[in-house]
Nucleic acid binder design. Structure first.
Length: 568
RNA sequence: UGGGGGAUCGUCUAAUGGUAGGACAGCGGAUUCUGGCUCCGCUUAUCAAGGUUCGAAUCCUUGUCCCCCAGCCA
């Protein structure tokens, strides 16, 4: 059977857009910053599955490492909040990253690897009188922080002697103090117009089991404190993050000012991906899973990498998409048709073709001898004969798709209708002689004749046949369940005006067709196998498939200019 | 009443003082044993107003609009 044609070289490389982050890094290299070294990192928090928005960040960070000689990209799990993080997500993130095609070598790290070092850094800040233990309540701290327009008030504990803070901090670590009773804060500027600088919390007490450190710690560092130092500890030179951290950069820099590292990492922000007809916020994806609105993180309608994979998307298509959307600082919504285009383009080049009928309509060829059978040769890839062919069995009764017949055809119809001729792909020409209906008047069978002089599909007398239909032999077809997926949200911007996005789930986003029939060559196709069903779309064999009960997921339909025209 | 960012075709994104280009989407056509693919063509943009300049998307001034920030989340 024709294997998929690999498209790694073709689809993903070559049309990378230049972007301002890469250019900034290249400038730094040219100027000899950090001794010309470049190290980036991809820092997921293990509290959910990776999605196509992460893919943008992954392609950026790993892409820079691949573009610049000797540069590397680390994988670092930002696991500083044990309340939400799980080992299962650590596993899935690695799996998805590998699947996408990126390799972090031996450089897989965890912020939790640095807990002891970070504790030491915190102690040093206390000793330098740059941090203090605050004993205010959460509410008092909130009030004390002021507002956008009002400067904050200093904490009554702000001038606590370093020795006293140190003693308290040690007791925090030792588990002698209750959750929430104390925090360690950086001593910066309570009246800063940037609220991130109003003595941000560095450590909180949290008696939670950590997926890696277990119960070793009951205090955990906050993002702003942990992230920059984790970068610095690893030797990261360029810490690339999304726009909402722009306000945090002064704090990122402040921490680095207190304990100079070489190289000193630099934070650069870019706009996260937004996609039309899609939700990408971790909270909303969690809601979809937790509320069982989808079958799981890998539901083929999910924008997660696991979901896209199960749907039949290829890593090359996702990478090509990421390369093409570019990187900038503008808040934007990428049209989901661009993603759909990327996957069609890749699948068109790599998938073999086969025939399958979603909604079978029985066609009896009255002038074909009963009990006889023949077969036709059909290339796996008409555009590339080198990929071989298979035989397709043919006999007196075949199925065509119900939607390829119209009793009263609209203008421009060149599929089957009473009295009309069409070609059965690779087989022969047939004419519809009679329509058989049930008591309700529903068409249940077509009585047709075939032209024995059209073997292979071309008429001996040279007459042109405009319509070509896909078909399967009744006797030899294999049954299949086909899951027709569509966008999870019909609305362009789900939940836009405060609407509940859950109520905007497209009820037609998953249509299960149970009576489909496939050509026999598809029997036994393994899970993950992809194929184009000619004239229908691209499909991927679902892991739910059992021997003799194949399940296909529709990745994406073919472009349909006829259907589009009909809609107008 | 604050601070930080951002405004280029319908949507993304280039042009870094010198022809506003590409991709997607849309429309039309050619080709076709997939109404697919491919090929060809077309439509459409510099937030506004002033200024500097031979020349401005780009520099200056003044506005306008959009996004982010008041977690012991990341």
């Amino acid at each position: 059977m024709s294997p998929e044609k690999p498209t790694t070289e073709r689809a993903s490389d070559g049309d990378k857009l230049p972007n301002f982050v890469l250019e900034a890094v290249q400038r730094d290299v040219a100027e000899g910053k950090s001794g010309g070294k470049v190290m980036t990192r991809f820092p997921p928090e293990p509290n959910g599955y990776l999605h196509v928005g992460h893919a943008k960040s992954i392609c950026l960070n790993f892409g820079i490492a691949q573009t610049i000689p000797d540069a590397v990209c680390n994988l670092r799990f930002d696991d500083t909040n044990p309340s939400t993080e799980e080992a299962e997500f650590v596993r899935s993130i690695q799996e998805d990253l590998r699947w996408l095609g990126f390799d972090w070598g031996k450089r897989m790290y965890f912020a939790s690897d640095y807990f002891e070092k970070l504790y030491g850094l915190a102690v040093a800040l206390i000793e330098a009188n740059k941090a203090y233990v605050d004993s205010q309540s959460l509410e008092e701290m909130r009030l004390g922080r002021g507002s956008f327009y009002k400067p904050g008030q200093v904490s009554p504990h702000r001038d606590r002697p370093p020795a006293e803070s140190l003693a308290l901090f040690e007791r925090m670590r030792a588990g002698e103090l209750a959750d929430g009773s104390h925090v360690l804060r950086a001593k910066i500027d309570m009246s800063s117009p940037n609220q991130n600088l109003r003595d941000p919390v560095m450590y909180r007490i949290k008696r939670e089991h950590h997926h890696r450190t277990g119960d070793t710690w009951c205090i955990y560092p906050m993002y702003d404190f942990a992230h920059g130092y984790s970068d610095a500890i690893e030797g990261v030179t360029h810490s690339i993050c999304t726009l909402e951290f722009e306000n945090h950069r002064p704090l990122y820099d402040w921490f680095l000012d207190q304990a100079p590292f070489d190289p000193r990492p630099q934070q650069i922000e870019f706009a996260r991906l937004n996609l039309t007809h899609t939700v990408l916020s971790k909270r909303k994806l969690q809601q979809l899973v937790a509320g069982k609105h989808v079958s799981g993180w890998d539901d083929p309608r999910m924008p997660t990498l696991a979901g896209l994979r199960r749907r039949g998307y290829t890593p090359e298509a996702i990478r090509a998409f990421c390369d093409r959307i570019g990187v900038s600082k503008r808040n934007s919504f990428v049209d989901v048709t661009l993603l759909e285009h990327a996957v069609r383009e890749d699948l068109n080049a790599r998938c073999r073709r086969a025939m399958g009928v979603l909604r079978p309509l029985r066609v009896v060829l009255e002038n074909y001898p009963e009990g006889e059978e023949q077969s036709f040769d059909a290339p796996w890839s008409p555009d590339d004969p080198a990929r071989g062919s298979r035989r397709i069995p043919f006999s007196r009764v075949v199925y065509i798709d119900a939607e390829d017949f119209a009793e009263t055809p609209p203008k421009g119809w060149f599929r089957l209708s009473p009295g009309a001729e069409v070609r059965l792909r690779y087989a022969c020409i047939i004419r519809c002689e009679r329509v058989v209906k049930d008591e309700q008047g529903k068409v249940v069978e077509l009585r047709c004749s075939w032209d024995p002089d059209s073997l292979g599909g071309n008429a001996k007398d040279g007459r042109k046949i405009k319509g070509t239909l896909h078909w399967v032999s009744e006797k030899r077809a294999v049954p299949a369940e086909v899951r027709l997926y569509d966008r999870l949200f019909a609305a362009e911007h789900p939940g836009e005006e405060g609407d509940d996005f859950l109520e905007e789930i497209n009820p037609a986003s998953c249509e299960v067709v149970t009576g489909a029939r496939l050509e026999p060559a598809l029997a036994g196709a393994p899970a993950g196998d992809r194929v184009q069903l000619e004239r229908v779309g691209y499909f991927c064999v679902d892991p739910d498939s059992k021997p003799g009960a194949i399940v296909l997921n529709r990745t994406i339909g073919l472009r349909d200019s006829w259907g589009a025209k009909q809609k107008k």
